[in-house]
Design a protein around this nucleic acid. Structure first.
Lengths: 301, 301
DNA sequence: ACGCGCCATCACAATTTCCGAAGACGCGAA
DNA sequence: TTCGCGTCTTCGGAAATTGTGATGGCGCGT
C-alpha cells in the first residue's frame, strides 16, 4: 500500500466517480480503477459498491475513509514541516577562538547570528591559532579565528582586520633597557608564546631578521597570562597592542617595529557553500563591517 | 513522496547505515540511497550527514523523523483496521417478508444473525411474494421470503418448508355447503387474494383443474385480513393451515385437497457469493434446521 | 430502441524502480 | 605510507510497476 492508493481512495470517495476522480488527480480512469482494485485487494475488503451511477462507499469504506484521510494528513504534515524547515538554518556550529572575546567582538557576532538564525546553536570554544587550524581541518571545529598567514589549500580564509603587535616590557626593566636594538633586547629574558600561537611567528620573524635568539624564560599561550607575566617582571613579550593599556603602571610598549598580524576566520574550503558556514561568514562580515562575503573570502596560500 | 520513502527514511535513521537498512527492507543498498536522495529532494532538506561510518541524522532529520513515524503509523492503522474488518460482516441487508412474522420465525432469524454478525443491520420489510420478487430483482431487497414456485433464472431459491394450504369457510356458510365438490363451492362467494400472493396461484390451480371460476367477492393481500374476512362471513378463501385455529368458532376447514406451497427464500443468483447473502442463508438454514446452504440452494426453474 | 455515462478489462507504452558493478572517500592497520 | 575495509554515490541496463487509449458490458433515461 502506498500513499497514492490512499489519495485515490479519498478522491473517489469524495467525487463518487472514477472518471471525476481521475480528472481531479490528472490521470486516466483505468489508472484510478486499478488503484482502487489494488487497495481493495491488499486490504482484503470491498471499499466501494459499483453502481451504474458511480461508486458508492461501502460501510467498510466509510469506516476506513477517515483513517485514510488521517494517514494522508500525517504524510502531508511531514511535507509541511519540511517546507517550514528548509529555509531555516537549523543545526550547530562550533567556532574556535584564538584570543579574548571582546577583541573578537563575540557578543556582536552572537547577536547577529541569533537575530538571523535563531535556531542555530553556536558554540564558542577557546583555543589558539595553532590548535584551531587542525581542529577545523579534521572537523572538530566548523570555523575558527586565527591570526597570521595560513598556508593550507584545504582552508578558506576570511580577512577581518589587522592586529597591531607591540613589544611590551615590564616597567621594572626600564633602566636595563638602554636601546631598542633588537639584538640588545634579545639578551634580556623573554616570555614566549607556545609555537601554536600566532605571536610566536611574529617573534621569530623579528629575531631572525636580526640574527639573534632571545632567552626563553617562560611560555604562555593565553594572551592575558602573557600580559600578566610581563607585568610581573618575568620578561619582555610580544602582545596585541590592545591587550596592554596605555597607562599600565607595570608594563610599557617599546618602540620596536612589528608587522601587524591579520586576524582571520578560516573554515574548510569544501564547505564554502554549506549554509551554516555562509551564515557565520555573513554574520562576521556584518560585525566587522566588511563587504560581502564573496569579496572577502579568498583562498589561503 | 510515497510511503516507501518514509519507510526507508525511518529504517536508515534507525540502522544508521544504508547497507543495514537495505538488508532490513530486503532490497539493495543503491535503492535505499535513491530513496533517501529523492526524499531529500522533494522535501528540500538534508536529512542525513554522510559520514564514512554511515548516515547520521541531521538536526532537520531528527525533527522530521517522528512525523514520518506518525505518518507510517497512520498508514499502518488503515491496514490494521481493514484487517479487523475483513472478516467481520458489516453492512445492511433488507429482507422482504410475505406473511406473518411468527410463521417466518423472524425472532429466531434475527437472533441468529445478530449472534454471528453483530454489525450487520437487518431490515425486515413487509410485502408479499408478488411484490418481493421484483424488489429482489431490482435490488430494492437483498433477499425475500416467497411462497410457491419461482421461475426466474436470475434468482437463487432456498427451500425452507412446505406450507399446507386449506380451504376455509365461514361457519355461517355451513348449511349452504352441501358438498365439497369444487364446482359447487365455486358458486359460493370467495375472498380472493391479490394476484401478487402465492395463495392466488393455488386458487387458480384448484379451479382450473375443475374448469370453473369462483365469484370474486373481495381481494385481500394480507393473510390476517383474509382470515378476518372469512370469519366475518364474506366468503370462502384459501389460507395457510396454521393461520386458522382448529377451534375457531367463526370459520372451519373444508376437506378439499390442496397441494402445499413451498416457503422459500430468494435472492439474486449473481450474489450467491456475497458475504451478506451467505450470512442470511446460513442463519436461515440454522433456524429452519435444514442442511448446509450449499445443499439447499438450488437454481430456480 | 437508441444514445449516454459509468466502470472493468486488455494490450501496449512510458515511467519508475531496482540491481550489480564500479568509483570515490575516509579510516585504521600493517 | 600503503593497503584493505567499509561506507555511500553513481552508472547503465534490466525488471517491475504504473499509466494510457481503446474496447466492452451494463444500467439508465430519452
Amino acid at each position: 500500500m502506498e500513499l497514492y492508493h490512499l489519495r485515490t481512495f479519498v478522491a473517489v470517495a469524495e467525487e463518487k466517480h472514477l472518471t471525476r476522480a481521475a480528472e481531479r488527480l490528472f490521470t486516466s480512469q483505468p489508472a484510478i480503477s486499478a488503484h482502487i482494485k489494488a487497495l481493495e485487494e491488499t486490504l482484503g475488503v470491498t471499499l466501494f459498491d459499483r453502481t451504474p451511477k458511480g461508486m458508492r462507499l461501502t460501510r467498510v469504506g466509510e469506516e476506513l475513509l477517515p483513517r485514510a484521510r488521517q494517514a494522508l494528513a500525517a504524510a502531508s504534515a511531514v511535507m509541511q514541516h519540511a517546507k517550514g524547515l528548509q529555509d531555516e538554518l537549523i543545526g550547530s556550529v562550533r567556532i574556535g577562538l584564538n584570543t579574548d572575546a571582546r577583541f573578537l567582538r563575540l557578543t556582536a557576532l552572537q547577536a547577529a547570528l541569533s537575530a538571523n538564525f535563531p535556531r542555530l546553536e553556536v558554540s564558542m570554544l577557546t583555543g589558539s591559532t595553532g590548535t584551531n587550524v587542525p581542529a577545523v581541518r579534521v572537523g572538530k571545529l566548523d570555523g575558527a579565528f586565527v591570526t597570521g598567514e595560513i598556508d593550507d589549500p584545504t582552508l578558506s580564509v576570511c580577512y577581518l582586520c589587522d592586529e597591531p603587535l607591540i613589544v611590551a616590557a615590564p616597567t621594572a626593566f626600564r633602566e636595563q633597557i638602554t636601546s631598542t636594538d633588537v639584538a640588545a633586547l634579545a639578551r634580556l629574558p623573554w616570555v614566549f608564546t607556545s609555537p601554536d600561537c600566532s605571536h610566536y611567528r611574529a617573534m621569530r620573524v623579528l629575531f631572525e631578521a636580526h640574527c639573534c635568539e632571545p632567552v626563553r624564560t617562560l611560555i604562555a599561550n593565553q594572551e592575558d597570562a602573557l600580559v600578566e607575566m610581563i607585568r610581573a617582571g618575568v620578561g619582555l613579550g610580544i602582545v596585541r597592542k590592545g591587550a596592554l593599556p596605555a597607562d599600565d603602571p607595570l608594563a610599557y610598549e617599546l618602540p620596536v617595529a612589528l608587522a601587524p598580524a591579520p586576524l582571520q576566520f578560516v573554515h574548510l574550503k569544501k564547505r564554502d557553500n554549506d549554509p551554516v558556514i555562509r551564515a557565520v561568514v555573513q554574520a562576521l562580515c556584518a560585525v566587522w563591517d566588511i563587504g560581502t562575503p564573496q569579496d572577502q573570502v579568498r583562498e589561503a596560500g
